[in-house]
């Protein structure tokens, strides 16, 4: 039943790790500041998608389903079923915060890169090593 889900999760985990490795390579090895910046956004996005993955719950159905709670909840059993099926909301709140912070950081970096371009006429860091 859950072997497909396990396979999917493993694939996602591996691709997540590969993503982080590639983006770190991009940040440190690419000479262009814009490419470094793109690699950095890939890095933070893969970290954030890892957090979304944490919230995943294995439901008795074997696949994610939309959890519905009858309101008002009829019994304790209803509540328990809802909690076991619903996606954990905390990682999503964390990711929301992290994304907003990332937005500010990215805006700042883009501003710096534009200033750099204004002074040197290029975004390459070949002359000055980072």
């Amino acid at each position: 039943m859950s072997s497909a889900t396990t396979f999917l999760l493993t694939t996602i985990m591996i691709s997540f790790i590969i993503n982080i490795a590639i983006s770190l390579y991009g940040v440190f090895a690419k000479p262009s500041l814009v490419k470094k910046f793109i690699a950095l956004t890939i890095f933070s996005d893969s970290v954030n998608s890892f957090a979304i993955l944490i919230g995943f719950r294995r439901t008795p159905l074997g696949y994610p389903s939309i959890a519905v709670m009858p309101s008002p909840p009829q019994s304790v059993e209803d509540l328990k079923r809802f909690v076991s099926e619903a996606v954990d909301p905390v990682p999503q709140a964390l990711v929301l915060t992290a994304v907003v912070i990332g937005l500010a950081v990215n805006m700042f970096l883009v501003g710096l890169i534009m200033l750099y371009y204004k002074y040197y006429g290029s975004t390459s860091t070949r002359r000055v090593k980072i």
Binding site: L24, V27, L40, S44, V105, L109, Y116
Partner: peptide, 14 residues
């Protein structure tokens, strides 16, 4: 100082 800030920011964000 822009250069120094870029270097500091990239490594710091990581």
């Amino acid at each position: 100082s822009i250069e120094a800030a870029i270097r500091f920011a990239f490594t710091g964000i990581i």
